[in-house]
């Protein structure tokens, strides 16, 4: 299987601006490979280094050392992001735009021809069930609708790799279910999905493989079924064990 996404010995550091405060290591020696068509769950408690890893993949933060490639292109090259779609956590899109205008703007960045742009706008708005609100300004959307608008923008370029940061965060159960359905549909279309989540049940349902990160280090990686069999426990118990959580007696 070709690696759509590969990370080798990645180290991410944040230098503190305060004098005397040590440099914080967010990710330390992380190596990962995600194959084409896989749905990959990236798990870890808050501060584990998930978002930092994604920030490197998207070119937001330069790595202190190590490399990251998307479709074989170094992530520091903007062209590496031509075939990806990214849904950040809790983004408030340009509230003065309508969903249609938002998608037209992002399509312009990908230089998608006009006719194709309109066709894709129709398709993604139908997919995220925002077709009825396409001409309404985003400021009138509910949180769930905004998240789905975000998903629509991530899909406008028909990406081969989707990077989703906590895609169900802050959504109600129906919203979560809809997002899960969309991920399943994308998987059915052969897309690669790399997403971080706290929702272990959700990860167990949709992911082919998972990686658990704790304090910047990779604790385990593998198919969900293999991990469950190997540890004779469900994903939640495995997660808690790996991050060293022991319940109070």
């Amino acid at each position: 299987m070709d690696a759509t996404l590969s990370i080798e010995k990645l180290r991410v550091e944040y230098r503190s601006r305060d004098l005397g405060e040590a440099t914080k290591v967010a990710v330390d020696g992380l190596s990962l490979h995600v194959g084409q068509g896989e749905v990959f769950g990236f798990l870890g408690p808050n501060g584990a280094g998930k978002t930092s890893t994604m920030n490197v993949l998207l070119g937001f933060v330069p790595p202190a050392s190590g490399t990251a490639h998307i479709f074989g292109v170094d992530v520091i090259e903007p062209i590496a992001r031509q075939r990806i779609g990214y849904l950040p956590e809790q983004t408030y899109y340009y509230k003065f735009l309508t969903a249609e205008e938002l998608l037209r703007f992002y399509a312009g960045i990908f230089r998608i021809p006009k006719a194709e742009t309109e066709r894709r706008i129709d398709a993604v708005l139908k997919l995220v069930e925002l077709d009825h609100a396409r001409k309404r300004q985003i400021k009138t959307y509910s949180k769930g609708m905004q998240q789905r608008a975000g998903l629509a923008q991530a899909l406008i370029n028909n990406p081969d790799l989707l990077i989703l940061d906590e895609p169900t965060s802050g959504l109600d159960p129906i919203g979560r279910m809809k997002v899960r359905e969309i991920i399943q549909r994308l998987k059915g279309e052969g897309k690669t999905v790399f997403f971080s989540s706290h929702e272990l049940g959700e990860v167990e349902t949709v992911c082919d493989r998972v990686a658990i990160l704790h304090q910047g280090q990779l604790k385990t990686e593998g198919r969900v079924s293999d991990l469950v069999r190997e540890h004779s426990a469900n994903l939640e118990q495995i997660f808690l064990k790996l991050i060293g959580y022991s319940p109070q007696p």
Partner: peptide, 14 residues
């Protein structure tokens, strides 16, 4: 503040 810079710069925009 609105975090729109993230999806924007996650696209092929220098």
């Amino acid at each position: 503040e609105h975090r729109t810079i993230f999806p924007l710069l996650a696209k092929p925009v220098t």
